[in-house]
Design a protein around this nucleic acid. Sequence first.
DNA 1: ACAACATTACAATGATTGATGAAGTGTTTG
DNA 2: CAAACACTTCATCAATCATTGTAATGTTGT
Lengths: 135, 135
Amino acid sequence: MIDEVFDCSLEFPLSTKPVCSHLDHAKRPISLPLQQNIERAATLFRAMGEPSRLKLLALLDQGESCVGDIAETLSDKLSSISQRLKVLRAEGLLVRRREGKHLFYSLADNHVSSLLRNALAHATELETSDSHEPI
Amino acid sequence: MIDEVFDCSLEFPLSTKPVCSHLDHAKRPISLPLQQNIERAATLFRAMGEPSRLKLLALLDQGESCVGDIAETLSDKLSSISQRLKVLRAEGLLVRRREGKHLFYSLADNHVSSLLRNALAHATELETSDSHEPI
DNA sequence: ACAACATTACAATGATTGATGAAGTGTTTG
DNA sequence: CAAACACTTCATCAATCATTGTAATGTTGT
């Protein structure tokens, strides 16, 4: 308890305990978001982080559509589309309304549209210069 | 080759060919983003779609930091942090600068900060009502 | 040049996840 | 009510992905 004061250098295996903290480490109050919200946001990103689902969102960004139409537009299986819609809806990215036999899906709010367009803008910017820093 | 003209009703397995298109299907010009950009944006979202990486971004949203400090702050392995930083940097979400022995990482631009906060806001909203539509 | 420190690259493993066809649910129409 | 339609759920399989220890690389200070 007391003798650990001496030679701390070999107390733990090498390269496991970094001793940096050379900047304003102590004075910064670093308040991270709640783990719960971090995870929720991550799930949201993951939902959007798949080409086919993202394309689906981009399609619905142009207006609501029903599953059959979506499947036809994207030339894909009904069950696949449905599966993707389910994932997106579970994240609150989509809402749906029924009209007769059809279910019409659309983006939940402008929030979603923002995320979508923001990311696509970022992606389009990178189109020209693939490597940003030549380090 | 020719006799398939009759009884089209059984020509293909049931429930594979939806015939919907009852809305303004033909008149809508549906212009989707380029597949290339869709995929790039998806990769970006996927990069952000993992709790540990997202937390890392949230940390850097409060200011730049070097790898050792990050590892200490998040109580995680150096190699894990480095790996995550690599993924995020590959997507142009982070930039870094060297100062002596240290590499300081920070968010690439406000673009990233926007995406981050936007999603966290969305996630925090859902905190109260977990199911949105009682359908 | 060498030792020490900071970071990265690699490879193995365990965990997630997306596609898919078949079966199930709910709605309208005859 | 039964058949047709629109869509969803389920179970399985293949592919992708994150973690982690260890080895390698790069940088600074002596």
